[in-house]
Amino acid sequence: MSEFLKIIDLTARAEEKELLHQVSLEIQEGETHVLLGPNGAGKSTLGYTIMGSPEYEVTGGKIYFQGDDITEEGADKRAKRGIFLSFQNPIEIPGITVSNFLRTALEQLTGERIKLFDFKKRLKNVMDTLQMDQSYADRDLNVGFSGGEKKKAEILQLLMLNPRLAILDETDSGLDVDAVKTVSKGIEEFQKKQGGSLLIITHNAKILEALKVDKTHVLVDGRIVAEGGPELVEDVGQNGFEKYLDKESY
């Protein structure tokens, strides 16, 4: 098996400002990586760029997925390859119910029609896992959802769409203790049962407790400044980003 996700010297900008500088990162299939960094470091920018957001222009470097160069590909094509981004701020979609949206997305991803009965059954199961009330299936996606409900709805999409690689952008921020537990369970299910690979952006070690972390990356000012194993999460948790910031100013 060749490499899974490979990012080489990725440089990206928005509105004339360079936000990512020669970022390189590699994830093998089935691995779970953690991306840490202070506010404004460019973590979301990296997630968006891997997903193919038109907001960011790639001015250098390449993104490969399962051996193919996807640097210039549209987001829908990347999704079809199995890349998924859980948004830090999910968008409200009036007029489209959660249920209809998921069914349309699934049909687009698989290219097959899906039987309503099978779909409903699966949706119910996943919603139960996430302790979401069934009534949410018939509500417009994210419309009037609280911050926590939006995050749960992202994980619902993750589990229903079953991608190969999921980038989770602060999916645990703004959740209460119980919700963090439920969401972690969902992520664990994705990792263990569905065999998915993960790039988790977080400020909170709690969500990582039940997960086996393979590698950690620290991003500061659009640069990867440190890499290590799961112990790096603990280190940053205790000491913050200070030493990396210092390094910058020398």
Partner: peptide, 14 residues
């Protein structure tokens, strides 16, 4: 754009 990107990221073409 933001709205479009969100839906496209779920595999739905424009």
């Amino acid at each position: 754009e933001e709205y479009l990107f969100y839906l496209k990221s779920r595999g739905i073409p424009e």
